[in-house]
Nucleic acid binder design. Structure first.
Lengths: 160, 160
DNA sequence: GTGAATGCAAACATTTTGCAGGGTG
DNA sequence: CACCCTGCAAAATGTTTGCATTCAC
């Protein structure tokens, strides 16, 4: 069994996404376009908590000129396809995040440097189900954000 | 030891809030006004997850004509004073909630009828601290929202 | 009487929508 | 060649701000 080259493996790690998208587009009789591909590509590269503005900036940096409206439309499309999730942290604007099937995580946010770490905790999730059952709820999703200060030296604006 | 009358007890249950606000206003050399008192009163009566719009409607229902700007300014004042918290559930607009000292709770939100239940779970909070410690974070706050469908008959739009 | 609060309207920031023209299946 | 997609600009939404007037201390 031979190992694949790094460049190929990187492509592979995104392939499932493109395939899932193609499938969705076909099912809905929607079309593949240059802009859509570019946005998706950039979205996959930036990979975490991307805002529409950040994507537009990235697109311009890559020499592409994509309208903001198209970016919003594409992100909403991805959200409808279940491939991305719209989130909002403290302030009032949206960021988008790739949804990997079966992979859920929560967030740990540094109030000093704005860094966002992801974590998973099965026990917390189990307790959430317990709480929901107690109140006669059937859970479909949840959001858990922990806010605080990261104590590492790397924090750009640490207060000590 | 005599029991107080219900009406008195209700006033009492809000008194700490008004006193804390008075104290804050005095400290900051700010003023007490008719509108501020009215908004705070309505806020306390509506008590959970109030939007600026809802407060304006309540004010109009009570015969008062308060500008939306004043409502926003008052709510932001309460937030600065640490007496209210600005939150956002799924959609992109703010709701405000009274902060009782030392009383924290999380939310259970029905996606069908929009109802919001509050709950507390000490064990989940303990696990959060554990997660934070693991990543070298000092927590200052958190947000946990559970989304789902309430299974009770009372849900206005239940899907079954 | 000084400085803060109000109401209105205009400004703002972010996201959505309508429309004419261009591109994809 | 039908229909979707794009880009632009205008609209919509929710919140904030500037300014003249009114009000609380």
């Amino acid at each position: 069994m031979k190992s694949v080259k790094t460049s190929e493996r990187k492509v592979d790690s995104h392939r499932w996404f493109s395939e899932a998208l193609d499938q969705y587009l076909a099912k809905k009789h929607l079309k593949q376009t240059k802009q859509r591909q570019a946005i998706v590509q950039l979205f996959l590269e930036l990979k975490t908590h991307v805002s529409a503005e950040a994507l537009r900036a990235a697109a311009q940096g890559a020499g592409l000129d994509v309208g903001l409206a198209t970016i919003y439309r594409t992100l909403n499309l991805l959200a409808e396809a279940g491939l991305a999730e719209q989130k909002q942290f403290g302030d009032g604007h949206f960021v988008y995040e790739i949804v990997r099937p079966g992979a859920h995580h929560d967030h740990l946010i540094c109030l000093d440097c704005g860094k966002v770490l992801e974590f998973e905790n099965a026990e917390i999730e189990r307790l959430q189900e317990k709480v929901a059952a107690l109140h006669e709820f059937r859970l479909t999703s949840h959001r858990l954000d922990l806010f605080g200060h990261c104590l590492k030296k790397v924090c750009a604006n640490r207060r000590d």
